[in-house]
């Protein structure tokens, strides 16, 4: 029995934390690769609708984003709670502003790439189609015909 008895008085060695930085660096690299920089601060709440037939947006620099949703609690006082349109960093006053927005974004890209500009409609799922139809109408007027309805993968 005494074979298995511990020799008393010996201290347990401290656990080495030398590999902790390595673990953290692996986590860091994962997040650096898997995420992208936040381009704009969202002023509207958006919960994307679910769909199955999704396609990835390819060239990030050739995508314009239009956000539609109810203003977040911070901006509710100023803009009310009805769904609003956000273009870049501000809330649009009227739907017609989209035309200027598209023309402005279009002037930033190379001329022969204008045809491949895509407009990504990031619309909250609880919005009614009225506001979306108005946006589509405006986009047609400025010949921005390639659009993408943002959605997330449906899991079933």
């Amino acid at each position: 029995m005494s074979k298995f008895k511990k020799d008393g008085g010996k201290e347990t060695p401290a656990i080495s934390t030398a590999s902790l930085p390595d673990i953290i660096f692996i986590l860091l690299f994962f997040f650096m690769v898997a995420t992208v920089m936040r381009e704009t601060e969202l002023m509207v709440q958006i919960a994307y609708p679910k769909a199955t037939e999704l396609q990835k947006l390819e060239k990030k620099s050739l995508v314009n984003y239009i956000y539609v949703g109810s203003p977040t609690t911070n901006h509710e006082q100023k803009y009310g709670s009805a769904p609003r349109i956000q273009l870049n960093d501000r809330i649009a006053d009227k739907v017609e502003d989209i035309r200027d927005f598209i023309l402005q974004e279009r002037s930033k890209v190379d001329e022969n790439l204008i045809g491949s500009l895509t407009t990504s409609l990031r619309v909250d799922k609880d919005v009614t189609m009225g506001i979306v139809s108005d946006i589509k109408q405006e986009l047609r007027k400025v010949q921005a015909l390639k659009i993408n309805y943002s959605a997330v993968q449906k899991l079933d």
Partner: peptide, 22 residues
């Protein structure tokens, strides 16, 4: 790590592609 967690978002650029009529 914390810095990157705060300033980045996961890539959610997926959606249904559509073409509007002129």
């Amino acid at each position: 790590l914390v810095f990157f967690l705060l300033v980045t978002t996961f890539n959610t650029d997926e959606g249904i592609q559509a073409q509007l009529p002129p």
